[in-house]
């Protein structure tokens, strides 16, 4: 039917696969995210540190280049657990900052403009809707966390040899698992907060606030009550504890790894509950 034929006509053409349809939301969401210069700038900025580290690793293994640069030492830095700990902490902080900027834009506008009935009157479930939105966060944060992390690990492995890679295989597992845990947590938290407050600016501020407030609250709790379990309320400290475990660091944070995993589990379950309550075509007022 051509544009000039202004009459109603049904559609009898081919249809796309039902299972992949939630990715349409991801595609449009990604397009919306990169329309923001701040987010694009932050995203590009988050590659600088991995790039610098890769260059550093190359220099580390090239004495001739070091002497050419008049750096009279064997190595620039040691590539050990502490190196990966710092690397992943920086990238995870970048991921958090980036999520605070674009995460709330994913669901809040749909809720604020009452667009959910339009999505759910089509063959699209609530789970698929959340999966479509969350997959953008998962994809973008993966690109700046475990992908560069594994790349740095791979570069070091290629320069140091297979024996080093085998000996430090736990680092690779830590990079992957720690990042995935952090990304999942951020995705669920960002979506749940934006679904709850329905205002993207407030949701972004709230996401930043959750991190700082919980850190402060956890520290205050530990100090005033002379306990260590307050740290289980601090998501950043939980992540540090998990990375520390994988990278073989003794950080003495007073946080047990399994306890940290359980804390993340509880927070993620609460976020999922919040999403299931808020992401509905119509909210029934009791």
């Amino acid at each position: 039917m051509a544009v000039y034929k202004r009459s109603y006509k049904g559609y009898e053409g081919p249809l796309t696969s039902r299972r992949k349809r939630f990715l349409i939301l991801s595609r449009y969401a990604a397009r919306g995210i990169f329309a923001s210069r701040i987010v694009t700038g932050l995203f590009i900025l988050s590659f600088f540190y991995p790039l610098a580290m890769i260059i550093g690793l190359y220099l580390n293994h090239n004495l001739s280049v070091l002497s050419f640069m008049k750096l009279h030492q064997d190595r620039l830095f040691d590539v050990n657990g502490a190196f990966f700990m710092v690397f992943m902490t920086v990238q995870s902080a970048g991921a958090f900052l980036l999520t605070a900027f674009f995460g709330p834009n994913l669901i809040a506008p749909d809720l604020a403009n009452n667009a959910l009935p339009l999505y759910f009157c089509r063959p699209l479930s609530r789970t698929e809707y959340v999966a479509g939105k969350a997959s953008v966060i998962l994809l973008l944060l993966s690109i700046i966390t475990w992908v560069p992390g594994l790349l740095v690990f791979g570069v070091e492995a290629s320069l140091s040899g297979g024996a080093w890679a085998w000996e430090h295989r736990g680092f690779a597992a830590g990079i992957l698992l720690g990042s995935l845990l952090w990304i999942s947590f951020l995705a669920l938290l960002a979506l749940a907060l934006s679904a709850w407050v329905r205002w993207k600016l407030v949701a972004g501020a709230l996401l930043l606030g959750v991190n700082f407030v919980t850190s402060g609250f956890a520290a205050a709790l530990n100090a005033t009550m002379d306990v260590t379990w307050g740290s289980y309320l601090d998501p950043a400290k939980l992540l540090t504890a998990i990375y520390g475990e994988f990278f073989g660091m003794d950080l003495s944070l007073g946080v047990n790894t399994w306890g940290a995993l359980a804390s993340y589990g509880v927070i993620c379950a609460f976020c999922t509950y919040l999403l299931s309550r808020k992401v509905r075509a119509f909210e029934v007022v009791r």
Partner: peptide, 28 residues
Amino acid sequence: FMPENDSFIANMTAVAFVRIMAELSGLP
């Protein structure tokens, strides 16, 4: 379905909005 209340995505053009809805209904 055309709902009663305002339902749209504010920062989208009309053509992008209608297109995404068509795609979600299964159109290539």
